[in-house]
């Protein structure tokens, strides 16, 4: 499922809303999530999961092509922890359907 497929599905479920408004709503939700993480704020969605930042220590990395070492500064990376409902539902479907692309 892509963002545009998500927008289409949401529009079908809410036929009283203009497609344009559904698009704006999806963009608005995504921008809020991006903004929260970019400012170090956690996101907690009951039943879906939580997003937080994980800290990475500075390290010496290597350019895999040239073998040259490069010093990489410390940074934060986004981390997602699926919620219980999502974990259970996804796992319960394991025997019934294959993973599609």
């Amino acid at each position: 499922m892509t963002k545009s497929e998500l927008i289409e599905a949401l529009a079908r479920q809410q036929p009283h809303l203009a497609l344009r408004d559904v698009e704006l709503a999806v963009k608005c939700i995504i921008e809020q999530m991006n903004h929260a993480l970019a400012t170090g704020e956690r996101i907690e969605i009951r039943g879906f999961g939580s997003f937080s930042l994980h800290h990475r220590e500075p390290r010496i990395g290597r350019n895999p092509k040239t073998g040259e070492s490069v010093s990489l500064p410390s940074k934060h990376v986004p981390h997602f922890k699926p919620g219980k409902e999502l974990r259970d539902r996804v796992d319960a479907a394991r025997e019934k359907c294959k993973i599609m692309d």
Binding site: M1, K3, L6, L10, Q13, L86, A93, C97, I99, D101
Partner: peptide, 14 residues
């Protein structure tokens, strides 16, 4: 919607 898609074995790309 996203949970439903993942439950069907379909990955979600936003």
């Amino acid at each position: 919607e996203m949970k439903g898609s993942l439950e069907k074995g379909e990955q979600v790309k936003i």
